[in-house]
C-alpha cells in the first residue's frame, strides 16, 4: 500500500496572522432612579463612551435600562462565555477601568497557572520542544573535567 493520509483540521494561532479581539460584545445596564447608578449614568453621557466605541470598533456595544437594579456591565466572548461586573457606586473613571478589564480578558475562567506550565513550548505540554529531545547517544557529548585541565570523554 502506498502512503495514506489522515484528515485533521488546522488550529488557530490568534495574532500570528490576524488578531481577533476575544471580547465581542459589551452590554451596559443602568437605572434612572437608583443612586448606585449615578456613576454609570455619568459614564454613559460622558465622552468616554463614544471614545471607547471609536477605539474598539470590533466590539458591539449596547446600552439598555435595568430599572430598580444595580448597574452592570456584561461582556460576551468569542468562546461563548460571559463575564458580568456590577459597577454600583463606582465613579466613571473606575467604570472605565472595569470596562478595560473586560475588554482585555480572553473569556476563559481565571485560573491559577501552575508553576510547571508557565513557560510552554509551541504546541502545548507533552509536545516535543523546538530543540528536540536530548539523547545520550548522539552528538559530541559532554566531557568530564577531572581537574587536570583536560576534558576527557
Amino acid at each position: 500500500m502506498p502512503v495514506k493520509a489522515l484528515r485533521t483540521t488546522s488550529t488557530a494561532r490568534n495574532g500570528l496572522g490576524a488578531f481577533i479581539l476575544q471580547c465581542k460584545r459589551l452590554d451596559f445596564h443602568y437605572c434612572d432612579h437608583w443612586g448606585s447608578s449615578r456613576g454609570m449614568n455619568s459614564f454613559l453621557t460622558s465622552p468616554l463612551l463614544p471614545h471607547l466605541s471609536l477605539t474598539n470598533p470590533s466590539i458591539h456595544i449596547s446600552i439598555s435600562p435595568r430599572p430598580s437594579h444595580h448597574p452592570i456591565i456584561r461582556a460576551s466572548y468569542i468562546n461563548g462565555r460571559e463575564k458580568v461586573i456590577c459597577v454600583r457606586n463606582l465613579q466613571k473613571e473606575q467604570i472605565l477601568k472595569k470596562v478595560e478589564l473586560l475588554r482585555d480578558a480572553g473569556g476563559e475562567k481565571v485560573r491559577r497557572v501552575k508553576g510547571g506550565r508557565v513557560v510552554d513550548s509551541f504546541g502545548g505540554i507533552g509536545r516535543e520542544g523546538v530543540r528536540g529531545v536530548w539523547s545520550p547517544y548522539h552528538g559530541e557529548g559532554r566531557g568530564v573535567d577531572w581537574g587536570r585541565g583536560k576534558v576527557e570523554r
Binding site: 500500500m1 502506498p2 502512503v3 495514506k4 493520509a5 489522515l6 483540521t9 494561532r13 496572522g17
Partner: peptide, 24 residues
C-alpha cells in the same frame, strides 16, 4: 487569506500514514 487561513497551524508531518515504510 494569509492572515486568516494560512497563518493557522497544521503539522503536515503528522498527516502521513505509512503501511510498509521500508518497502516504500
Amino acid at each position: 487569506f494569509k492572515a486568516h487561513i494560512l497563518s493557522r497551524h497544521l503539522d503536515v508531518s503528522s498527516l502521513f500514514e505509512f503501511r510498509q515504510p521500508t518497502r516504500d
